[in-house]
Amino acid sequence: MTAPIIQVRDVVLRYGDFTALDRVSLDVFEGEVIVVCGPSGSGKSTLLRCLNGLETFQEGEVIVDGENVATCRNLPALRRRIGMVFQHFELYPHMTVLQNLTLAPIKAQGLPRAEAERLAMDYLTRVGIADQAGKYPGLLSGGQQQRAAIARALTLQPRLMLFDEPTSALDPEMIFEVLQVMKNLAVLGMTMVVVTHEMGFAQEVADRVVFMDRGAVIETAPSAEFFASPKTPRARAFLKRILRIG
């Protein structure tokens, strides 16, 4: 078996006295879809942000696509191989959708503008909003904005994608279109780490589910197993709560 594309080993991250990540370990293999869930404040976003070096941790190590994130000399180059999608989209509001997509390919990757635009249009077509390319993000619906944000990450042709609650800020009728885009991505074999409370998506698409609580990974299990019979009481309680609400 090949080495995992993401290796997280005993990572400890503290904010002052507060331990946000408490000896977290996780392996993700190429092509896998991992769903990370857990109560608010359990450290899901923090873990995700450690994977592309947006956060610095005090102990342990994170190796992504063969590079040690903590000691990486060229983080920008590594980050280009890791797409990230945010809860609040974070499209640049003063640029058109197309400019949002081509900025990093042109400035960071050094692609010629024409090629970057061709790539960008290609991905906008795939997420179904090619007709919005010339608009400013503020004029798009939430679902369209999030699809544009996914396309922005994809335009860098990353090796893996990180999603931090990509549908939490969306109205219910728009959640579907975003999840659909993510499912297609999974089918095409993209490695994905998804923080989400969409348990339907987890059941249908995830290979494994990681359950976190108070900064620690409490349980990691194949998706079917996790939903059929969570091993830990905390995961059981969490599932019960969230499935009743969701």
Binding site: R79, M84, F86, Q87, E90, A104, K107, A108, A153, L156
Partner: peptide, 21 residues
Amino acid sequence: PKGQFEAALSTGLTKLQMYRH
């Protein structure tokens, strides 16, 4: 929003490019 800085960095822009663009 803080997310704008993070989004820019996450696409592989350097800090300088993030500020500039």
